[in-house]
Amino acid sequence: MRKTTYIQAINEAMRDEMRRDESVFLIGEDIGHYGGLFRVTRNMMEEFGERRVIDTPISEQGFMGMAVGAAMVGLRPIVELMYMDFFLVCADQIFNQAAKMHYMTGGLVNVPLVIRGQQGGGKRYGSQHSASVESTFAQFPGIKVVAPATPYDAKGLLISAIRDDNPVLFLEHKMLYFTRGDMPDAEEQYTVPIGKADIKREGRDLTIATFSYSLLQTLEAAEELKAEQGIDIEVVDLRSITPLDMESVLMSVAKTGRLLAVHESQSNAGIGAEIVARAYEEAPYLLKAPARRLGMAPAPIPVSKPLEEELLPWKKNIKAAVLEMMR
């Protein structure tokens, strides 16, 4: 066992898959010679060369479209979006093209494409570089969405995403990049399945279903609530948004009787609303108290640090929500 950063875990997953499978290649802005704005693709150009690590101009529509085309004929492109907010620049290629292709073609064509990059607030990047996009993507069948929180899950899920025959959105978080976690030795092969949640903390009183950086905020909140209030929280790390592992969530709620869904994308019409709705549809009898969701407040993300923290569903807001539910 060793410890790696989240960035290193992602880099290793891409490197291992590119060594294993000639059809995998990287494409995006500043990913090659520079090694990626956040250094996630460091050393890839040196090992795999310009043929498989492609620096593009700032043309998100164009290179996303080309990646879709390459995937349609069997290559496995990994596209880096420098900031996940930029998906809106190339949204047609992602949603109208990649996500719908298999269906529109009656199954004749599939698009084994990975779109990866970082999202989220916390670094004072402001409104156009801090959004969380998972809820928007969840509206589109045909594309899978994963958002790992630990280096172990990041590596295992990215390998699964690359090997998946469908488009997969792989969501990193800028606050997770330098976090460290346990990792098997480099030569040890493993994957984490898409669509499977993981219990990151066991507890009796209340279930929090979350993912990505919100998981870290939730775990901290859980420790403090335990120490300060004696409230024992179970934390379900969804890891995948599409498909959503509701079974694991409901298994946990069966134990705790209370459900709070936490995420950084908007609360309104977000994935948390979906989780809560499905809990009421599928197992209302499990709930001892009204289920709730806590997402981003209805505003774009501001630059100012206290304002950003006011709006984000971080520890302070998570604790407040739990205390209300436990009252």
Binding site: G65, M66, V73
Partner: peptide, 8 residues
């Protein structure tokens, strides 16, 4: 761009 991607 799909065709360009296939050419790529």
């Amino acid at each position: 761009p799909h065709a360009a991607g296939m050419a790529l």
